[in-house]
Amino acid sequence: MTLWSFLAKPDSGFNTPAQGWTSVNFGSWDRIHMYAGHFTGGSRDDVAMWYDYADGHDGIHTFVSASKADGTFNAPYQSRNTAAGNYWYENMQVVPRDYNGEGRDDLGAMYYYSGGRAKMLTWLANANGKFNDAVGGWERGGRQQD
């Protein structure tokens, strides 16, 4: 697996891609979901990778920008680990944004449960790029009666 950076040109085009990070044994491509954001609050975007493990647990790995203009990243580290059975990635839509206004992007998700129940979840980012446990927000119950 290789993480490529496509650095923008002033004319809105892209430079030749830079190899930001590479590994020969990181995981399976079909289990990876990537998100860009200022997860550490630095001057350049980092990358958070949600990994849906085959045994049912989920992990988030953070690739911190090397803070150089060449588009490279430091080696990823596990920034969140969730026990098997807590989340099913196919039941959520994730959007990175700074949800609490402290200058770091967090991961927010609309999560669908069976029976029509939906809930907003937020994983707040720490300055080291790790994520706290999910905090529940807005929720809509199961099927409504007319």
Results as ranks from 00 to 15, higher is better:
96 P>A: 11
116 G>I: 02
23 S>K: 04
23 S>Y: 01
28 S>G: 02
115 G>P: 09
14 F>H: 05
80 R>M: 07
63 F>E: 15
16 T>F: 00
67 S>N: 15
15 N>R: 07
79 S>D: 02
107 L>D: 03
31 R>E: 13
41 G>Y: 06
22 T>D: 09
67 S>I: 11
52 D>A: 15
21 W>V: 00
13 G>R: 00
37 G>R: 03
104 R>E: 10
96 P>V: 12
38 H>N: 03
122 T>K: 12
24 V>S: 14
70 D>M: 00
51 Y>A: 06
89 Y>W: 14
33 H>R: 11
67 S>Q: 13
49 M>P: 04
97 R>N: 13
95 V>G: 00
77 Y>G: 15
109 A>Q: 04
89 Y>N: 10
9 K>A: 02
75 A>S: 12
118 A>L: 09
103 G>K: 05
121 L>G: 01
71 G>P: 11
23 S>T: 04
101 G>Y: 09
124 L>K: 07
98 D>C: 01
112 Y>H: 13
12 S>I: 05
91 N>H: 13
100 N>G: 07
63 F>D: 12
42 G>V: 00
36 A>H: 06
47 V>I: 06
9 K>L: 05
49 M>G: 01
44 R>S: 08
53 Y>G: 01
26 F>K: 06
72 T>I: 11
65 S>T: 12
19 Q>D: 05
24 V>W: 05
96 P>Q: 02
119 K>V: 10
89 Y>Q: 14
104 R>C: 01
105 D>H: 05
102 E>R: 10
125 A>G: 09
39 F>D: 05
88 W>T: 07
40 T>K: 02
81 N>L: 13
44 R>Y: 12
83 A>W: 08
79 S>G: 05
77 Y>I: 06
110 M>W: 06
65 S>M: 13
102 E>G: 08
117 R>W: 10
61 H>E: 10
46 D>L: 04
23 S>W: 04
13 G>F: 01
69 A>F: 00
27 G>D: 06
33 H>S: 14
94 V>A: 04
68 K>N: 04
119 K>Y: 05
68 K>C: 02
93 Q>N: 14
60 I>P: 09
123 W>K: 02
20 G>V: 00
65 S>Q: 09
40 T>V: 03
115 G>A: 13
10 P>E: 14
90 E>N: 12
10 P>D: 10
49 M>F: 05
45 D>A: 08
60 I>M: 07
111 Y>N: 03
25 N>A: 14
82 T>R: 08
73 F>K: 07
62 T>S: 15
91 N>P: 06
86 N>F: 05
16 T>S: 08
103 G>V: 09
22 T>H: 13
109 A>K: 05
90 E>H: 08
51 Y>N: 07
92 M>V: 03
27 G>Q: 10
73 F>I: 10
55 D>P: 00
55 D>R: 00
92 M>K: 07
65 S>D: 14
51 Y>H: 06
